[in-house]
Design a protein around this nucleic acid. Structure first.
Length: 393
DNA sequence: TCTGGGGTCCTAGGACCC
DNA sequence: TCTGGGGTCCTAGGACCC
């Protein structure tokens, strides 16, 4: 017996949220965008899209296409509040919901729709009631797997409802262009098209080694998806974040040491404050750089002891900058803390030996190399204590 | 006036250990 | 003696998603 999985996605969420806040913007071309030299469009209202404006387009280009477009900066507090209302609303139907981003989720509707005679009417009511209560618009997909539900919700916007049954896969999913398949992005689809894979159906039927090579182990996942055999397990638990990062693009590329390092400091402050607030510590500090040619680079260091102290993060990020990128013209700089664990689990992750010998260092800014050297010496000492027996394979 | 910012996951190569 | 093989961790880059 297959499950009934719903995917529900808020239509132009950021733009819609702005209209809810400023109702006089209803019906006008509106973009949520950074209004700076290098700003880009985050979301465009349907009225703005009529002018050819799209997400990820530079703001100046949007202005060129539609000089009277209304521009608003993102308001994440507003989005967060509306997003909570949205998920609370869905929970009235089922508690089995998996939140995949601020404006979309999967819901396992198997129980709540098991005796439903008219699923379209049921979903229409869900959609209309959400609109009446919150003024949020959504598109809904219903299918036996998460992949199919996601594809279904994408098919009609705004306020669409699409149901895909297993027997309809070849009719509804297979004719879609391969670039519309979830998981196939702008780098991969041209390569597949070159191999004559133009639609999802072409991919489903293809057996060639070249395609396998392009997709790696993802190939088998996608293949399952295309045949309706994908994952139908809606996972409720919020998974712990694995990294916390922050980056900024300079208005003008720069090689100014003070400007760059003070930005690295600022980024370090942001991520350590967030980590501290969330009770997270991490071992790996990464410095992200984009140069004038838009080439992304990164350098990282993994510490012996997890940390979220500003000193640790900033000093290591600075060291990575000094030794790799100093003097280079830079467009963007970012700092990321990863390999995160909960601070309360910290001591579980370390042996007693580590803690006793290095309690002090772990809380300050001792680097992995220094620690490693100490460990090596200690290990050698221990080995000689044991009579110097060493194992050879 | 060309191209934001927050993430996740995968890959490939190297170091190191046994 | 021209030199295995498995496992783990780390690094850097890349693709994708919202």
């Amino acid at each position: 017996m297959s499950k009934i999985i719903m995917h529900i996605d808020l239509n132009c969420f950021f733009a819609r949220a702005q209209v809810i806040k400023e109702p006089e913007l209803e019906g006008r071309p509106l973009i949520i965008a950074g209004h700076t030299r290098r700003g880009i469009v985050s979301t465009a209202s349907y009225e703005a899209r009529k002018y050819g404006i799209n997400s990820a387009m530079p703001t100046y280009m949007a202005l060129k296409l539609c000089p009277k477009v209304v521009i608003r900066n993102p308001d994440f507090k507003l989005y967060h509040d509306l997003s909570s209302k949205f998920f609370d609303y869905i929970r009235r139907y089922t508690n089995i919901i998996e939140i995949t981003s601020i404006d979309e989720c999967f819901a396992d509707m198997t129980e709540c729709m098991k005796d439903c005679k008219d699923p379209v009417l049921f979903l229409k009511n869900l959609q209309t009631n959400l609109f009446n209560e919150t003024k949020l618009m959504c598109s809904i997909g219903l299918a036996p797997t998460k992949f199919l539900a996601k594809m279904a919700s994408d098919m009609k916007k705004p306020m669409g409802i699409t149901i895909i049954r297993k027997k309809d896969i070849k009719k509804i999913i297979w004719p879609l262009p391969i670039k519309d398949m979830f998981g196939i992005g702008k780098k991969t689809y041209p390569r597949l098209e070159e191999l004559n894979i133009k639609t999802i159906g072409d991919f489903a039927l293809d057996e060639s080694l070249e395609v396998k090579k392009i997709l790696g182990k993802f190939y088998f996942v996608l293949k399952d998806w295309a045949y309706g055999k994908g994952n139908d397990n809606v996972v409720v638990e919020v998974q712990d974040s694995k990294s916390i990062g922050s980056s900024t693009t300079f208005s003008f590329d720069t090689d100014d040491y003070d400007e760059i390092t003070s930005m690295i400091y600022q980024k370090s402050v942001e991520i350590t404050e967030k980590a501290q607030k969330n009770g997270k510590i991490g071992t790996t500090i990464t410095l992200n750089i984009k140069d004038s040619e838009f080439t992304a680079m990164s350098r990282s260091i993994t510490l012996r002891c997890a940390t979220n102290s500003l000193d640790d993060v900033y000093n290591n990020a600075l060291k990575l900058y000094d030794s790799n990128f100093s003097g280079m013209m830079i467009r963007l700089v970012g700092v990321t803390l990863s390999n995160l664990i909960d601070k309360k689990n910290f001591y579980v992750q370390m042996s007693l030996f580590d803690i006793e010998k290095h309690r002090e260092e772990c809380q300050t800014k001792l680097l992995i190399d220094e620690l490693n050297n100490k460990f090596k010496k200690k290990v050698l000492l221990m080995a000689s204590d044991l009579g110097g027996n060493s194992h050879e394979d």
